[in-house]
Amino acid sequence: MKIDIGISDEGRVNVAEQLKILLADTYTLYMQTHNFHWNVTGPMFQQLHVLFEQQYNELALAVDEIAERIRTLDVAAPGTYKAFAELSSIEQVDGVPSAERMIERLLMGNEQVVKTCRRAMISAQEADDESSLALISDRMRVHEKTAWMLRASLS
Rank of each mutant, 00 (worst) to 15 (best):
K2A: 11
I3L: 15
D4P: 09
D9S: 14
V13H: 06
N14T: 03
E17D: 14
Q18M: 13
L19I: 10
L19S: 01
K20Q: 15
I21A: 11
L22Y: 01
L22N: 01
L23N: 06
T26A: 03
Y27I: 07
T28I: 06
Y30N: 10
Q32V: 07
T33W: 00
T33E: 01
F36R: 05
V40T: 13
T41V: 10
P43N: 08
Q46Y: 11
Q46W: 07
Q55H: 10
Y56V: 01
E58P: 00
E58S: 08
L61Q: 11
E65V: 03
R69V: 05
T72D: 10
D74V: 08
A83N: 10
D94W: 02
G95Q: 00
G95C: 01
S98T: 15
A99E: 11
A99Q: 07
E100W: 00
R101Q: 14
L107C: 10
M108Q: 14
E111Q: 15
Q112N: 15
K115D: 14
T116Y: 05
C117R: 06
R118E: 13
R118I: 06
R119Q: 15
A120E: 00
I122Y: 12
I122K: 14
S123A: 15
A127L: 07
E130M: 13
S131L: 11
L133E: 15
A134L: 10
R141L: 12
V142Y: 03
K145Q: 13
A147L: 03
L150G: 12
L150T: 05
L150R: 12
A152S: 13
L154W: 07
S155E: 09
